[in-house]
């Protein structure tokens, strides 16, 4: 199903990506662990794509490679048809653990990316303020991260990335540490933010509902070694609201995704592996 519709531009093209780690086995000897192999994925410009797959299948590994935090051992990754550069000026990553600098005020945290890009002080402050407003936390600019709740911290982390306007947003289970209610609020908030400028987003989650609600497409990964097994289009209308969770279409998609996951689990079992 990896067909490009319309004349959409491919933002990220990953081909036969391979990544292996050296790990110690029980005898204490080094042994290669192939985490990604034959990993193919196209991410279209402006799309919201979610990676779904069993724990340890290599989702974070791919995200890290794309973010410039790790290197592939083989294959090609093209961004705008050009090879991936090491310093990721055009990508931004949001971690599950917020990763805010605790010694900086909220507004100063938003300025980090702009500082790195050598933007002048006044412009920095102005852009940071605008983006803090976008996530509804303008009143907190002079607070420190430890004074904010988890949901607020994650909103700051998102605003911090938006502030330097990367072309691609990478989000690695950004809402996994939040309570259920906050998580649902954050999903809607993210949709609202994304609708404004439709940045390309690669999102990782374990929640099927979250994947359906947010994504244009959901890419299923298999493990050992990790690769894309199937890509499902989510044909729900946009802009999406909370109510869409209760729609018939939503539960139909959920059912089919569950079936896919089930298959993957059985597949894994037959290999004697566990999730």
């Amino acid at each position: 199903m990896n067909i490009l519709e319309k004349n959409d531009k491919v933002k990220v093209r990953a081909r036969s990506v391979k990544r292996e780690f050296q790990i110690k086995n029980r005898q204490g000897k080094n042994q290669p662990l192939v985490v990604l192999e034959d990993f193919d994925l196209d991410i279209q410009e402006g799309e919201f794509l979610t990676l779904l797959g069993p724990s340890g299948c290599g989702k974070s590994t791919f995200l890290n490679i794309l973010a410039g935090l790790d290197k592939a051992d083989g294959g090609d990754i093209l961004v705008d048809e050009k090879p991936l550069e090491e310093r990721s000026y055009d990508r931004g990553i949001v971690f599950q653990s917020y990763a805010l600098l605790p010694w900086r005020t909220i507004i100063k945290n938003l300025e980090v990316g702009l500082e790195i890009r050598g933007i002048s002080k006044e412009t920095r402050r102005e852009v940071a303020r605008k983006n803090l407003e976008r996530v509804g936390l303008a009143a907190y600019e002079n607070q420190y991260p430890h004074q904010l709740s988890g949901g607020m911290k994650q909103r700051v982390a998102i605003a911090r990335v938006l502030a330097y306007d990367p072309a691609i947003l990478l989000m690695d289970e950004p809402f996994a540490a939040l309570d259920a209610q906050t998580r649902e609020d954050m999903q809607i908030e993210l949709l609202r933010i994304w609708e404004a400028d439709k940045k390309t987003i690669l999102f990782v989650t374990h929640s099927i509902d979250e994947a359906i609600l947010l994504s244009d497409r959901v890419a299923f990964m298999s493990s050992q070694p990790g690769h894309i097994r199937e890509i499902i289009e989510i044909d729900l209308p946009r802009p999406r609201t909370e109510e869409i969770r209760n729609s018939v279409e939503f539960s139909q998609i959920r059912k089919s995704l569950w079936a896919l996951l089930q298959e993957e689990a059985l597949l894994n079992q037959s290999y004697g592996a566990f999730i």
């Binding site: 973010a67 410039g68 935090l69 310093r87 990721s88 000026y89 990508r91 931004g92 990553i93 971690f95 653990s97 990763a99 600098l101 980090v112 990316g113 500082e115 790195i116 890009r117 990335v161 330097y164 990478l170």
Partner: peptide, 20 residues
């Protein structure tokens, strides 16, 4: 994760050393 996050924003080794 602080180092990784600033690196992902394009921070140089020098920036990471002095600012993180």
């Amino acid at each position: 994760v602080l180092i990784r996050s600033v690196k992902s924003m394009g921070g140089s080794k020098l920036y990471i050393f002095f600012r993180v």
